[in-house]
Design a protein around this nucleic acid. Structure first.
Lengths: 161, 161
DNA sequence: GGACGGCTACTCGGATATCGCTTGTCCGAGTAAATGCGG
DNA sequence: CCGCATTTACTCGGACAAGCGATATCCGAGTAGCCGTCC
C-alpha cells in the first residue's frame, strides 16, 4: 500500500498558501519553485484541490491559487481525500461468495463481510485522526518547532521567488 | 491509495485455515478453489505469509499450508503487514528542504516534518485498530452472524473440494 | 512375508511476462493587464 | 489629459505519453507415499 506523493505536495502547498496569506493568488510556477517540484504535474494536483473546493483558482495574468477557506477550516482529511479519492483503501471483492460460498443461499450474505467491516473500522480510525487536524494546527506546530519558517516563506514569496 | 487485493485473499485464507483446524496441511490449490482465485498467484501471497511466520508450509505430497500459531495469536495487522510490507503508506520526501528551504541551516530540519508526523499518527491509529483484532475475533463475529459458515467450509474441505 | 531401492505424483518456491495506474509533459482556452490611439 | 479598443502576456485546464509496481503465470527443486523387486 502506497500513498501518492501528490499528498505531500498538496499539504505543503496548502501550508505555504496559509503562510503567504492574502497577498494575492500564487501561481503554480511559484509554488513549484518553492519546493523544486515539476510545475505541470503540481498543477494537476492543484486542480484536484480546486475541484474539492480547498483552493480557488483565478485565471489570467496575476492569477494563481489561494485557499478557499481559512486554514482552521481545512482538515488534513480534506486534502488527502481530494488527492487520493474518496474510496477506501481496502475494497472487498466479496470472494466469500465464490467457490464454497456459491452453494449457500443469498440470505447468508446480507450482513457485511466481517473482514471488510474490520478493515473499514481501521480506515475510519485513520480518517478520524486526519480529520482532527487542520492546516492551522500544522501552522501552530511548525511555529513552535521552527519559528522563522513561516516568515522565510513569506519573505521569499514577496521577494519574487 | 489502494490496498492490494492480496490482503483480502490472505485474510480469507487465514480464516479458512482456522476453520479447517488441524486436519493436516491444506494445499494452495484447495484454498484457491475455495474462493475461485488464481492458484499460482495465491501461492505467491501464501509465501509472503510463510516468510512472516503466520503460516507454515510443508512441501511434498500431502503438503500445503497450516497456521503457525493459534488464531487468537494472529492479528489482522500481522497479515496486512506480511502482504503489503512494513513501510508506511505516506513517505515523506523532505521536500521542505528543497527550494526555499535549501537556504536555511540544516539545524532547522532536525525535528521531524510536522506534516509527516501527522500522517504517521494517523497510520499508527490505523495500525492500532488492526492490531486489536485477531483471526479468532473474526471467527467469533462470523459465528454470530452466519453460524454455519465455519461448518460449511470444514465439510467442503473434508469432502475433498 | 518383510525390507529395501527406485519411481511417481504432488507440493512449494522462485524466476519470468503482462497489465494498469501513477507519474510526468505538453499545448490550447480564457482572462486580466498593459498599450496605443482617438477624442 | 481621459476613455476605449486592441494587443499581449500570462495563467489555468484538460488531453496526451512513459515508467514502474501490482497482477498473473509457468517451470524447476524437493519430499512423501507407493510399487516392484529381492532376500
Amino acid at each position: 500500500m502506497r500513498m501518492g506523493e501528490g499528498v505531500e505536495w498538496a499539504l505543503h502547498c496548502c501550508l505555504a498558501l496559509a503562510w503567504i496569506g492574502d497577498g494575492g493568488p500564487v501561481p503554480t510556477a511559484r509554488l513549484a519553485a518553492a519546493f523544486e517540484l515539476p510545475p505541470a504535474y503540481l498543477n494537476k494536483h492543484l486542480q484536484a484541490l480546486s475541484k474539492a473546493g480547498i483552493v480557488t483558482s483565478t485565471p489570467g495574468a496575476k492569477g494563481g491559487f489561494r485557499l478557499s477557506r481559512r486554514p482552521g477550516e481545512i482538515t488534513l482529511l480534506d486534502v488527502v481525500t481530494a488527492i487520493e479519492g474518496p474510496e477506501d483503501a481496502f475494497r472487498c471483492q466479496e470472494i466469500r461468495q465464490n467457490g464454497v460460498g456459491s452453494a449457500l443461499p443469498k440470505k447468508d450474505f446480507r450482513e457485511e463481510c466481517v473482514i471488510a467491516g474490520a478493515m473499514r473500522g481501521a480506515q475510519i480510525a485513520w480518517r478520524r485522526e486526519l480529520a482532527a487536524q487542520t492546516i492551522a494546527d500544522i501552522e501552530a506546530a511548525v511555529a513552535r518547532k521552527a519559528p522563522h519558517a513561516a516568515a522565510g516563506m513569506r519573505g521569499w514569496h514577496e521577494r519574487g521567488g
